[in-house]
Design a protein around this nucleic acid. Sequence first.
DNA 1: GCCAACGTTGGC
DNA 2: GCCAACGTTGGC
Length: 140
Amino acid sequence: MAYWLIKSEPDAWSWDMQVKKGAKGELWSGVRNHTAKLNLMKMKKGDRAFFYHSNVGKEIVGVVEVVREHHPDPTAETGDPWVVVDVAAREPLRKPVTLETIKAEPKLKDMALLRQSRLSVQPVTDAEWKLICKMGGVKG
DNA sequence: GCCAACGTTGGC
DNA sequence: GCCAACGTTGGC
């Protein structure tokens, strides 16, 4: 199983809104960056991702599961190559892990979140995943 | 094919 | 509100 981190501005799409969609999940739409798109296309059903609130909060607030693999983004112009996956909320972090906390943890200094701050869909290593789950008080 | 200009993201 | 990072566009 692979692990990921997906970012959303809570004003546009928040964890609470994701939770309301339940087990059926919701399209992760609007990705317009090729690196992010490639990551979406690598996601498999059952993969997990951290749900990160950018701009407001700047913290990982929950864990989602990929419930449908990539398919065309209905919000894209016809003929454009953008894709979505469907993700469903799995569990909230008992204690959100903030960007500040991640920066303060030497083991997490190589996270894409810090290295490529603008990438909205990014991979997370097994070690990073386990550590953040522990910090956040979730099984993952 | 290079690079300046410009737009967007996202932290501060 | 500012600015760094970085992607895209368009002139040459």
